[in-house]
Amino acid sequence: MPTVQEIEQRLFQLAPRESAMDWDNVGHLLGSPEQEVTRILVALDITEAVADEAIAEGCQLIVAHHPVMNCKWLPVQTIRSDTPQGHLLMKLLTHDICVICMHTNLDAAEGGVNDCLASVLELIDPGPLRGEAGLCRMGNLSAPLMLPDFIRHVSKALNCNGIRYADAGRPVYQVAVGGGACGDFESAAIAAGCDTFITSDLNYHQFLDAAGKGINLIDAGHFPTEDPVCRKLVAYLKAQFSQITVHKSASHREVIQYYVEGE
Rank of each mutant, 00 (worst) to 15 (best):
G27K: 02
D195A: 10
M102D: 12
H66F: 08
I62C: 09
F241N: 02
H28F: 12
M102V: 02
N25H: 08
P84N: 04
A64N: 05
F197Q: 00
F12Q: 14
N105T: 10
P128W: 04
N161E: 14
V50D: 05
F185D: 15
N114M: 00
V4N: 01
V154Y: 06
L61E: 00
A143T: 06
I215D: 08
S249F: 04
V229F: 05
E57M: 04
H153V: 11
H252L: 14
Q206P: 01
P128G: 06
D227A: 10
Q85A: 00
V4P: 01
L202V: 02
P16D: 13
A108V: 11
A20E: 03
Q77L: 14
Q60G: 02
I62M: 01
T196L: 09
P33M: 14
L147E: 11
T83D: 04
Y258L: 13
E254I: 10
S32L: 07
L11R: 12
A49I: 10
G212Y: 13
T3A: 04
A51G: 00
V113Y: 15
G214T: 11
P126R: 09
L14Y: 12
Q13C: 14
G178P: 11
E8D: 07
Q243C: 13
G127I: 06
T47Q: 08
S242R: 15
A191S: 15
D149Q: 14
P2N: 14
V42I: 01
H205L: 01
G27H: 06
C136Q: 06
V99C: 06
T78L: 13
G111I: 02
A250E: 12
E226P: 08
D227L: 07
P144K: 01
N203P: 00
D167Y: 11
E48V: 11
E8K: 15
T199H: 09
T245K: 10
A143V: 13
C59L: 09
V172C: 01
H87F: 05
R17C: 01
R130L: 10
N159W: 14
L30T: 03
H205W: 07
D82G: 00
H252A: 11
D227C: 06
R170W: 05
G27F: 09
L129F: 09
V76Y: 14
A188L: 02
L158R: 10
A239H: 07
I244Y: 01
R39W: 07
Q35W: 06
L44C: 10
H222V: 07
Q174V: 04
G112E: 12
E122H: 15
A64L: 02
S155Y: 12
N25T: 07
C230N: 11
Q13V: 09
G262S: 08
D45V: 04
T199F: 03
L141K: 02
M146L: 15
F197V: 06
P84G: 03
M90L: 04
E36R: 05
L74E: 14
V113E: 15
I218W: 14
P33K: 05
L145R: 09
L208K: 11
T83W: 11
S142F: 05
I100L: 01
D22M: 11
A118R: 02
W73R: 15
A191R: 15
V246N: 07
A191N: 15
I40S: 02
P148C: 05
E263G: 08
D82P: 03
A176I: 04
Y258A: 08
I151A: 00
L233Y: 03
